[in-house]
Design a binder for these strands. Sequence first.
DNA 1: GAACTTAACGTCAGTAATAGTCAAAGAAGG
DNA 2: CCTTCTTTGACTATTACTGACGTTAAGTTC
Lengths: 154, 154
Amino acid sequence: MGTLADHIEAYIKRMLRESQTNSVELSRAQLADTFACVPSQINYVLTTRFSLERGYVVESRRGGGGYIRVGRVPVADRYTHAMQILQTIGDELEEKQLNDILACFRDMQWISEIEMRRIRGIVQQEVSTVSQGKELLRASLARALLFWIVKSAE
Amino acid sequence: MGTLADHIEAYIKRMLRESQTNSVELSRAQLADTFACVPSQINYVLTTRFSLERGYVVESRRGGGGYIRVGRVPVADRYTHAMQILQTIGDELEEKQLNDILACFRDMQWISEIEMRRIRGIVQQEVSTVSQGKELLRASLARALLFWIVKSAE
DNA sequence: GAACTTAACGTCAGTAATAGTCAAAGAAGG
DNA sequence: CCTTCTTTGACTATTACTGACGTTAAGTTC
């Protein structure tokens, strides 16, 4: 006997399975009405169950004709490993750790030597623009760029 | 389905694609009539969807024989243009500005619709992990990812 | 050619329709 | 108990659309 959030999650996932396009468009208010709950409950379900890490992208628009679109991003098996490594990146990332990860990606031939240098360059460039929170920014940038590459390779 | 504004936007973009000259001339009153709306709705669409930030120029003239001309911003060298846009990103970047840049990149066919969503997803994901400096982080992430794409396309 | 008329387009503020955020209360499980 | 997950609702932000009123250009009349 699941919670309300579980039911809403299942409902959206069923819609996704039934859609040909791998994405569905919802109306927050209408969905909330269907499940007789407050609209913000829908946001709760989306943030807890349909995160990028779990393989979903959520877009939305407010105002008249607003909507919420939930899309499935396929996660290929051969990149599961790469994703696992990305998930080891914590809040902060030292330059040395970044180099380790880049070396790992290069060794796995997920990126080339040139791309490795390019990533280092971009990250260094961006990190040098801030005076505080360099490790935080480095972690975000590394995750973002490597995630992009992993996803693009699919 | 989309809103009225979305339809008018699509209509104008189709006209633009079909025109060889990279620009189209409209009659506000006539267009409003076609879509059965008030004329100012056309202005709304033009300011929200065809801004300079998104890579369009709009000229118009009032009075008898008045017109509205919508054109794509002239792009001599696509790479240069992309870099120029990236350089307009300052220290901070609001979500709205990011959307404009992404829309512009998509309209220039530098990125696909799917890639646009992916970037939005990655940036949202990363930005949501911090409590402060969201605009700062968004600016860095956007620059890094888009720079990566531009460089990779060279 | 000044005044008037007509035909465009522009602005702005208000209303309605959506969605997002956040903190606090409640429930469930250890 | 204590922690973590769920649920709620008050408040906020964004987007779409309309209509009244303003501005500009071209044509017409005398």
